[in-house]
């Protein structure tokens, strides 16, 4: 069972995750309007910028994060922004959305000028993670765990980051056992998705470069 402290930590993380969402206007724009390839590019860029801002606001709420070295805070956010954003977008593809929303969004991304070679692994990731049917609490905690990855480039005090990540991992592990009593491998599978995310992160830099060139 979760201790009182762990329950409080989980509530704090989940509340912060829910509080900081990208503005609904973007979702409406994506749904309602027709765009040229250029406009699509601009809209996706705006969405990406907003996602990073939301990520930073969420991260500020993680207990202890703001007490880390300032440059380490930036290194952690820089290193995890792409992964955390992909995780956040999982909601779009797994939650019950208005009919056709996910397809429309997929269509927009496919028409954005990004090469098919990059798009396929992204959608494969969404499909594989959707199969896990993650609970909202698991998604919020997994995002916090991702952000607090000690071995990101340029992080100086890795131990300080580990000290923040470990309690999150403990809560997530217990939560997985409580919510999926018949799937003892569930926690391991969640962590496996993090490995997949890391691969996407490496891919993402190439994706951006090729997109810009186009």
């Amino acid at each position: 069972e979760l201790t009182k402290e762990q329950q409080a930590l989980m509530k704090l993380i989940v509340d912060a995750y829910n509080k900081h969402q990208i503005p609904q206007d973007f979702a409406k724009k994506l749904l309602q309007e027709q765009y040229s390839a250029d406009e699509n590019f601009l809209l996706l860029t705006e969405v990406a910028t907003s996602q990073v801002q939301v990520l930073v606001e969420f991260t500020k709420s993680i207990p202890g994060f703001l007490s880390l070295d300032h440059e380490d805070q930036i290194a952690l956010l820089k290193g995890s922004a792409v992964e955390a954003t992909y995780l956040r977008s999982v909601q779009v593809f797994s939650k019950k959305m208005p009919t056709g929303y996910a397809q429309l969004l997929e269509e927009r991304i496919r028409k954005s000028g990004i090469s098919q070679d990059f798009i396929t692994p992204i959608f494969n990731f969404y499909k594989s993670i959707s199969k896990l049917h993650m609970a909202p609490e698991e998604q919020a905690l997994l995002t916090a765990v991702t952000i607090l990855t000690p071995d990101r480039p340029y992080v100086k005090d890795q131990q300080a980051v580990e000290r923040l990540q470990e309690p999150m991992l403990d809560v997530l592990r217990k939560l997985c056992a409580l919510q999926h009593p018949r799937e003892p491998q569930y926690f391991a599978r969640l962590l496996g998705r993090l490995t997949e995310l890391r691969t996407l992160n490496h891919f993402h830099t190439e994706l951006l470069t090729s997109w810009r060139t186009n």
């Binding site: 990073v52 801002q53 500020k60 930036i74 820089k78 830099t205 470069t209 810009r212």
Partner: peptide, 21 residues
Amino acid sequence: PASNLGLEDIIRKALMGNLED
């Protein structure tokens, strides 16, 4: 890469709370 500078810029501003800049 320029993409990383852009990202870092957004992060620094958001950490300082100057989203409007």
